[in-house]
Design a protein around this nucleic acid. Sequence first.
DNA 1: GCAAAGAACTTAACAGCGTCCAGATAAGCT
DNA 2: AGCTTATCTGGACGCTGTTAAGTTCTTTGC
Lengths: 217, 217
Amino acid sequence: MKSPKKPTKKRAYHHGDLKDQLVAAAEAIILERGVDGFTLREAARRAGVSPAAPAHHFKDAKGLLSEVALRGFKDFGDALDAGDKRGGVDPQARLREQGMAYVKFALANPARFQLMFRAGKFDYAYPGLADAGMRAQGILARAVHAAYGIPDGEPLTPDANGFLLATWSIVHGFAHLALGGELDGSAQGKGGKRAIVESFLPLTLQHLPVPKVPRKP
Amino acid sequence: MKSPKKPTKKRAYHHGDLKDQLVAAAEAIILERGVDGFTLREAARRAGVSPAAPAHHFKDAKGLLSEVALRGFKDFGDALDAGDKRGGVDPQARLREQGMAYVKFALANPARFQLMFRAGKFDYAYPGLADAGMRAQGILARAVHAAYGIPDGEPLTPDANGFLLATWSIVHGFAHLALGGELDGSAQGKGGKRAIVESFLPLTLQHLPVPKVPRKP
DNA sequence: GCAAAGAACTTAACAGCGTCCAGATAAGCT
DNA sequence: AGCTTATCTGGACGCTGTTAAGTTCTTTGC
């Protein structure tokens, strides 16, 4: 559907690779001015093109942001996967490492993360986006399945579902509070932003929920 | 066109109570179109005044939203307080009830809640806002102090602080995920929105962290 | 009792935004 | 070569927040 002609010299069009440059510009703008500070015209300006040029690569402003979110979700999934593997065979360790990876990704990629969880700023129907989002969610779900000794295909028990939600909520909430600056007050005088991830985060994850059911129901 | 208003004791100026009507309009708009869908002009339009009229009551658009957030934080604090009292003398029960109140408020007041935790949409320096925000935070902190047997004035131990953050994160994260529609997938076929608060929430709060220190030495 | 003061509001304007449209330009295809 | 198609420009439209200057009405001072 794109250009299956000659991938050898793909850049030599008119401008080069405007699409990628627009994505890069968008991420930079969000980083500097926040998600709400993003404007399509500014992205075009930074790429050196007219305000109408992006329309040839993205349906509209939401389209560009959708592409940014998509790439974010892919990397996010990779980070969670890496954390999961780091946890080895112990479900508890897998969950802990995933939690660390979850929050660390959020703090290391504030622009993307804030966009990714801002429904309305992008189209969930953008090609590939729903898949990437569900993949990330599935990584956590699989670890919960393992923790409760439930085969991957089967549905979770109510309690296991509550456990999943609690775990998800705690890491998501922590990331959200940290990015929102809600924790800055407590972190003041204790090392600031660094203290949040190095001190507060481990201390918080120590209180991650524990599965209420041994491996055998 | 001139609607008969009830000025009661206050003077019925030109329009009446434009300030309150602007606040009401703002809340309605946020409810209908989301926080990002709010525009100052639309609020003025609904109040039946020109786009420049709000400037006489609020410094700018952020000023109006600050007033909305302020009223939200006040009610939020009241809700948390009520939950705390509902918990009686048992710190665990107090925390559980506060958690329920926290999420229920968010789901019952989605417009306000989403605004309240959207730094950048309002001025934190708006008169009374910081106080109202800290009051709400303090309610949770006091229950944690009680759970760990630490006098109210003294600082929390590192573990107690982690416990506070974990508790806050879990309810905040749940509210955020629920409002973002992130839970709709799982809730489908199980009762939708109602299932979230009636089924998922209690199940999740069952996994609230437990203080790692016995209350009395 | 009446004019001065000032609060509440309007009208008009400005710059910036997203998006649509008609044209220009350059690259690839036959 | 000619033709087609992708890419980008320039201008326009209606929307936004905010400011400046002018108008209408309420309150206050004398």
